[in-house]
Design a protein around this nucleic acid. Structure first.
Lengths: 142, 142
DNA sequence: TAAAAATACTCCATAGGTATTTTAT
DNA sequence: ATAAAATACCTATGGAGTATTTTTA
């Protein structure tokens, strides 16, 4: 697990700029000065070896690479927050391991043997199916 | 998107300690001195408000909360690396958006209409199904 | 020429290193 | 008694701020 010279803080900055289309405003939402934000993005672009924004006098526009990165970045930030929440819950005794049948109602109306796995509550893994997906679970605790 | 007082670097440290069961050895694999690693873990535990390791004179043992966090952390680190790779590929013109049929051979032997979506190459989303999963894709580019 | 981002420069917080102490088996 | 982690302390890198310059539409 090597380091990449940047971290989620940089992705947080990237997301803010992407959404604002403007360094100044993004800096505001991050409670950060504009030059500090510029530097963070510069570090990110340098470490990636890829330009992320085209600068103009009316704000910035994302490059194709930025449009690739954006959904990944928001996903990572969400998952990061979730991981923290689950861990805290576990520390407070409000989460644990559970043996459950887990299947997707779009894939199949019934559970199959192969779907039975251990899961941590509040953390079902993703599914390939569209938004209609419904997860079901069967007890018991352990 | 608020900050949490720690970042992926801390999770990287956590994973190393979890896997080594030993601060000293984990510090070695991270090319870091033992006290620095101790401090990182201390920051993580403090920010989470949760103990992660029980210290002993023969190494450390993970707490239940740590066992919750571990798979999340490794998943995040993997996804982080993937996001970087895809973004770099996009910057180098080796990735882009593709309209494809995507389905899981375990769910169904044939694609269904609802499975057709835009995807970024090299970044298929996860699936609920076991390891037998095979992704198939149909052209064309766009 | 006007709005926006980059640069220059300073300061401080924090990360990391070495030496040492504390803890647990 | 011994192996391992925590603590104390120091140093240096880098992150953030203000002021200013450069860029682009």
């Amino acid at each position: 697990m090597e380091s990449f010279g940047f971290d989620l803080a940089h992705l947080r900055a990237f997301v803010a700029v992407f959404e604002a289309g403007h360094f100044g405003r993004a800096a505001g939402t991050l409670h950060l000065a504009q030059p500090a934000l510029s530097k963070r993005i510069a570090v990110l672009e340098r470490q990636l070896g890829v330009g992320l924004f085209e600068r103009g006098s009316r704000g910035v526009r994302p490059t194709p690479a930025a449009r690739v990165l954006y959904p990944k970045a928001t996903d990572l930030l969400t998952r990061f927050g979730d991981a923290i929440a689950v861990t805290r819950a576990a520390g407070a005794g409000r989460a644990g391991r559970l043996r459950i049948w887990m299947w997707c109602s779009f894939c199949s109306p019934r559970p199959t043997r192969r779907c039975m796995r251990w899961h941590w509550i509040r953390s079902p893994s993703g599914c390939c199916c569209p938004t209609t997906t419904r997860w079901r679970r069967s007890s018991p605790w352990r």
